[in-house]
Design a protein around this nucleic acid. Structure first.
Lengths: 101, 101
DNA sequence: ACTACCTATCGTAAATTTACGATTGATATT
DNA sequence: AATATCAATCGTAAATTTACGATAGGTAGT
């Protein structure tokens, strides 16, 4: 990517907002979150049935959402229950709200 | 990218939200928008001075924001004045608001 | 017409993203 | 201990993104 030598230091809110936005920057991930909002929680397998995507692909999208902090997984053997991470969700909500005035 | 044969058809709001989110998914673009909110408008050259990025890189980021509909450019020869596109901004705002409840 | 100025576009390279199938790992059940 | 189930991870390929310098284009002033 041929980056400039010094990484640009944006303020924290800017970085955080961009990170959240990036995580939401794919329709499948928006749809996953919407699904989680309806169901409150769900298992990976549920999503694999809902979306015409490979299991590994769904897993990858979940990982991105988890890395961004928007969701969290809880072990419910042999399944994994995913829910929205309320704390970070509220953080994201506040950042977007502020951003849009 | 080895896409599945049939493209997934998400509903329009989902697609639109993802498109907006993607455009906002880079700290430089968040910073550009914040700059535009402060100044109400600005020229490409202003931004080139603000950010330690090549002129072409700034131009590219502006293009992405423009493609997403979040900003618009107005010819003010020999400069180009960029402003937030109010209509689409409000659309984005509404979509994010609804998304976050 | 020529020049100067500003910005978009082109060509490029490297990193990242998105998708898949195959494999691995972890836990519950037999 | 062996098996079954579910989901993460690995390896992979193709597309996209991000960045740069160089070039092209469009307008105003000379």
């Amino acid at each position: 990517m041929k980056r400039s030598l010094e990484t640009i230091a944006y303020n924290q809110d800017t970085e955080a907002l961009a990170r959240f936005a990036k995580a939401l920057g794919h329709p499948t991930r928006i749809a996953i979150i919407k699904h989680l909002e309806n169901q409150s929680c769900c298992f990976t397998g549920d999503l694999v049935e809902v979306f015409p995507l490979a299991q590994s692909t769904v897993s990858q999208h979940l990982k991105e959402l988890k890395n961004a902090g928007l969701i969290q997984g809880e072990l419910k053997p042999p399944k994994i229950k995913y829910c929205i991470n309320k704390d970070n969700w509220n953080k994201a909500k506040a950042l977007f709200q502020e951003f849009f005035d």
